[in-house]
Amino acid sequence: MLYRVEGIVIRSMDYGEGNKIITLCTENAGKIGVLVRGAKKVKSRHAALTQLFTLGEYVFFRNGTGLGTLNAGEISQSHFRLRGDLYLAAYASYACELLDRILQDEETGSFWFQQLKACLAALEEGKDPGIVLNLYEMKILQTAGYGPELDVCISCGSERSDEDLLISPRLGGVLCKHCRHLDPPAIKIYPRSLKMLRIFAQLDLRQLGNITVREETKVELKKVMRGFIDMQLGINLKSRNFLDQMEKYDI
């Protein structure tokens, strides 16, 4: 059966001497693997369609639920700037790998697709990559069913002032000081950072404008979102390890 989908390349790997297998996050068909014959050859007309972060229309044949075989394609947005900048490529790779690990094969992924599309566009437009990824991580958590509780204590349900709230990545939300014994490692957070998290919870990535955030707030947000991703999703990402090394040595 012949399929025509709009998709983003979230993974690309060599297969055999001259071929590649790409993984597409599509708007209406979920996550799909497609074999691209001859993609490694110098004169291949399909080589550009296999590049990471590429957004395009892909036409492929598939019999059953296995790999598809690419027939044709057309690029809508190559995102070459992301691939050409080591710093941006690291952030974009993390966004793609995170979605790849969360999204199941052929799971309906319209919202996933739209958020990844908006994430890559925001990175290419020069918006703060740390904030873009934190917002993207929040959307991933929410869509996967692990959105944090940020308004009332996740244990007792009481409303407290922001100054009396801690963040518990393990329990999945804010924790009042009276319930801190339930999670002693809960993170102290400044009210301005908690307000930013609530904005992340309400905001769609497609609505993100230019935003300026204090450096100390960005450090806190990264720590908190990293905690939620680790505790709630429990996945180890190669791209994140590279991103950490790059930031550590200020590459």
Rank of each mutant, 00 (worst) to 15 (best):
M231H: 12
V59H: 09
L165V: 10
V42R: 11
Q115T: 14
I189V: 15
R83Q: 11
H79L: 05
G147L: 00
I211F: 12
E163G: 00
G18Q: 08
G33H: 04
R240H: 07
L98R: 06
D230R: 15
Y91V: 07
T65I: 06
I75A: 02
L103I: 15
G30W: 00
D128P: 03
F80T: 13
L123P: 07
R160E: 14
V9Y: 04
S76R: 15
Y3P: 00
N28S: 14
N134K: 06
V219W: 03
V59Q: 13
K117V: 04
E106T: 10
K31W: 01
G73H: 10
F113Y: 15
V34T: 07
L197I: 01
K43T: 12
I199Y: 11
L67H: 12
G56R: 08
L233A: 07
D244I: 14
D183C: 05
S76G: 12
E125V: 05
E247T: 06
P185T: 02
I10G: 00
L208N: 04
N134F: 03
M1Q: 02
L123Y: 07
K238F: 02
V219L: 14
G209P: 04
H79P: 03
I251Y: 13
R206F: 01
G157K: 10
I8S: 10
H79S: 06
L182F: 08
Q142A: 06
L197H: 00
K188Y: 10
M138F: 13
L70A: 10
G18Y: 11
Y190I: 10
E149F: 00
E159K: 14
G73S: 12
I22K: 01
A201I: 05
H79E: 05
Y136D: 01
K223Y: 04
E124R: 08
A118G: 09
K31L: 09
D151T: 14
E159F: 09
R83T: 13
G173N: 05
F113S: 03
Y146G: 03
E137A: 14
K43Y: 04
Q207I: 02
G56I: 08
L141T: 05
Y15H: 15
E17V: 00
G16D: 02
G16R: 04
N134Y: 06
F113L: 07
Q245E: 13
K195Y: 07
A92S: 09
K238E: 12
P191A: 10
L67W: 07
H181A: 12
V5F: 00
A121S: 12
K188H: 13
H46N: 15
A39Y: 06
